[in-house]
Amino acid sequence: MTRVRLHTLPIRVWHWVNAFLIVFLVLTGVQLRAPELRLFGNYANAVWLHKYAGFAATGSFVFWVAYVLSTGALWRHYLLRPSDVKRMPKQAAFYGFTLFRGAENPFKPSPANKFNAMQKLAYFSMMTVVTPVVVITGILFSDILYFHTYIEAIGGLRVLDAIHVVAAYFFLLYLLVHLYMATMGHTIFDHFKAMIVGYEEEPDVEKHPDPQ
């Protein structure tokens, strides 16, 4: 077995903190959307918890931005290149069909290139579009009175609410896919383990060409 180092310690810590915050935000958000479900006691509790978990998630996002910009990880791992676009059909075919026929994953992660084309598309759009939208609309919601001028410029509270909730549903959908895809390593828990210890173990018996 060969150990392939994929995730640095700061990214692993960030990932699990962020994962906890997002799940927590989704659950408190569910109570805000369906007040009849008293998941966190009364509604005021859910509002309070959602608000401060949102602030923490904003901090977590700022950390991620600073980290991927300062280490160059954004360009190295997240940015979709033309070559990735060409590989995308093959990757999609693997997940949808060829996997069941016993085909090997056409992409092998390496420290220089961690994500396949579809992962890049998902992570990049989530982290550069959906997350900033949720963060910004959430900050505006945190003090409606203080940010009222900006809220009116956007079109009012109904518009702000609609944008925040649509982005939150994107998060929910992404979360479901992400959790399931995390089971698609060599074993079900391989990817989960990699995000804890930092490396994945590749079998030595077969040699795979570097996807780069």
Binding site: R33, A34, G155, R158, V159, L160
Partner: peptide
Amino acid sequence: PLATAINMTLLGEEK
């Protein structure tokens, strides 16, 4: 249209 009632939201009628 959404922006016709700029301050009305968060009540049950939108869920």
